[in-house]
């Protein structure tokens, strides 16, 4: 039986781990390799690094971060943020990442998912989907709209429909980030998580809102997710990954201990 995964998310800006709240304001936390090693030793199942750097120098720095992380940990990790071409995907995969996460560029240019899947296999292509609660309408029947550019720009796309389309185009996993609950640590958005988990046949990672171990348990049971992403709750030392997984196991969730 596949274990439910606990994935630690690290935002990287100019080569440093950083954490923001609701996409507003960021605090630099330290060297990504130190964080990677710490979470590897704590039993994280996977890591994901998002490059939130705006500058070209920062991007070059990020590939170097990927290379250094790959030498330090022996679990899979994904990278995302600003990846807009197959060549860029190749650069980070060659540097040692297992997967690339495509978010806004996949919305603007959906063929990117297909091109990535053809070049590297579906398993390498994660769709990053930011969803925001809106009144249900004919165009957005699920009541969750896809938003891009860190939540600033609505797209008019229905989150569930986009998840299905991305699967058909070659995405191998979906990382669903609920904008409304991101960074506030009050629990994942279980409604949209469940809707998407039921709508696609590829694994779904719940993201946005993890604050306590029971939130992760809810995401992978009630929410139907295959994995849950954590950031703040481990970065600030409130919990270790091991402690989270121990509580999930005690609640009957199959996790790797």
């Amino acid at each position: 039986m596949l274990m439910k995964r606990v994935i630690v998310c690290l935002d990287v800006r100019n080569g440093q781990v950083t954490k923001g709240v609701k996409f507003q304001g960021n605090v630099d936390l330290g060297d990504p390799v130190d964080y990677a090693r710490r979470y590897y030793q704590q039993g994280a199942d996977e890591l994901v690094f998002y490059d939130i750097t705006a500058s070209a120098e920062g991007r070059t720095l990020f590939v170097e971060v990927v290379r250094r992380v790959a030498a330090a940990i022996f679990i899979p990790f994904a990278v995302g943020g600003g990846i807009r071409s197959v060549d860029h995907m190749r650069a980070v995969l060659t540097a040692g990442a297992e997967k690339v996460s495509l978010n806004s560029p996949a919305v603007r240019e959906p063929d990117l998912l297909t091109a990535g899947a053809r070049a590297f296999g579906c398993q390498c292509v994660v769709l990053g989907l930011d969803a925001k609660r809106v009144p249900a309408s004919a165009a957005i029947p699920s009541g969750y709209e896809v938003v891009i550019e860190g939540g600033r720009t609505p797209t008019g796309k229905d989150a569930v429909a986009w998840a299905k389309e991305a699967e058909a185009r070659g995405a191998g996993e979906i990382c669903l980030n609920a904008i409304d609950t991101d960074g506030v640590r009050q629990g994942y958005e279980l409604t949209i998580t469940r809707m998407i988990a039921d709508a696609v046949r590829i694994p779904v990672i719940a993201s946005g809102g993890g604050g306590k171990p029971e939130h992760l348990t809810a995401a992978v049971t009630t929410g139907g997710a295959d994995a849950a992403l954590v950031a703040s709750m481990v970065h600030y030392g409130d919990y270790t990954v091991a402690a989270i997984k121990a509580e999930m196991a005690a609640a009957g969730v199959p996790v790797r201990l």
């Binding site: 039986m1 596949l2 274990m3 995964r5 199942d45 579906c122 398993q123 191998g172 996993e173 046949r201 590829i202 694994p203 295959d226 994995a227 790797r256």
Partner: peptide, 14 residues
């Protein structure tokens, strides 16, 4: 086989 499971088989297993 895809019956009752997700494919690809992604993650940690025994």
């Amino acid at each position: 086989p895809a019956e009752a499971v997700k494919v690809p088989h992604v993650g940690w297993n025994r």
